[in-house]
Design a protein around this nucleic acid. Sequence first.
DNA 1: CCGTTGTTTCAATAATCGTTGAAATATGGA
DNA 2: TCCATATTTCAACGATTATTGAAACAACGG
Lengths: 114, 114
Amino acid sequence: MEKTDAVTALAALAQDNRLDVFRLLVRSGPEGLTAGAIADALDLAPNTLTFHFDRLRMAGLATVRREGRSMIYAARFETMNSLVGFLTENCCGGVSCAPASSSKPARKRNKAPA
Amino acid sequence: MEKTDAVTALAALAQDNRLDVFRLLVRSGPEGLTAGAIADALDLAPNTLTFHFDRLRMAGLATVRREGRSMIYAARFETMNSLVGFLTENCCGGVSCAPASSSKPARKRNKAPA
DNA sequence: CCGTTGTTTCAATAATCGTTGAAATATGGA
DNA sequence: TCCATATTTCAACGATTATTGAAACAACGG
C-alpha cells in the first residue's frame, strides 16, 4: 500500500461514527448491511451516513451494491489488511511493533502482548 | 486500547507530514531526533512541526525530552502496538484481516416516535 | 550581560470536516 | 398510474485543521 492510500484510509477510520460504521461492517462480514440497518444500529441520519459511506468507499474500505430499494454496504477486508501491513512495516520496528533494531533485520517471532 | 484513543491515534497518523514525522521517528529508534533535525529532514517550518509534534504527543505516539537547547522527539512504540492491536481486533476478522463469520440476525428497523 | 541558536507560542487565514434540513432520485407495490 | 420506502444530493452552517509570520521563551557561549 502506498503512503497516500494509507493516509486516506487512516483518515477514513479516524472519526468516531465512521469507525463505528466500519466496525459494524466488519462484524457483519462479506454480506454487508443495508444503509438503513446501519442507520438504525448506530442512530445516525441517513444523509450523514451517506457522507461517511463515501469516505469509506473512497478509501477502499467499503463496497456498495444495490438490492431492491436498499443499498448494501460491506467492508473491504483486503484494504484493511493492507493498511495494517503498511503500519506494521512502516510505523513499527518491522516485525511487530518493537523499537527499530539497530542493524539486524532478524527474523524473530514477536507475539504482540494485548 | 479504547476506541477514543484509537480515533485520536488514527487522526494523528492521518496526515501526510505527520505520518512522515512518525515514520522518521520510528526509523530513528528510541534515541529519537531533535526537532531541528526533523525539520531539516522533512523540510518543514519549525512552528508547523511543533503543531504536529503536539498532535503526536497527545495521541501518545511520541515523547519529548530536552537536551541542551534541543528538544528530542521519539516514537512511542507501545502506543503504536496497541493501535495495531485495536485495528486487528476490531476492524479485521480477528486474527489477521479475514472476513468475519457472518450470520448475525438483522436488527429490527423501527423509528418514528409519535 | 549580550547575541545566537533552537524551539515554542500566538493570532490569523484558507481549507476541509461533520452535520443538518429540504429536496431529489430510484425502486417496488397497489 | 400514484404512493410509499430507501437512499442520495445539495446548500448551508459552525467547528476543526494545517500552515504562516511575528514574537516570545529557553539555553548556551563569549
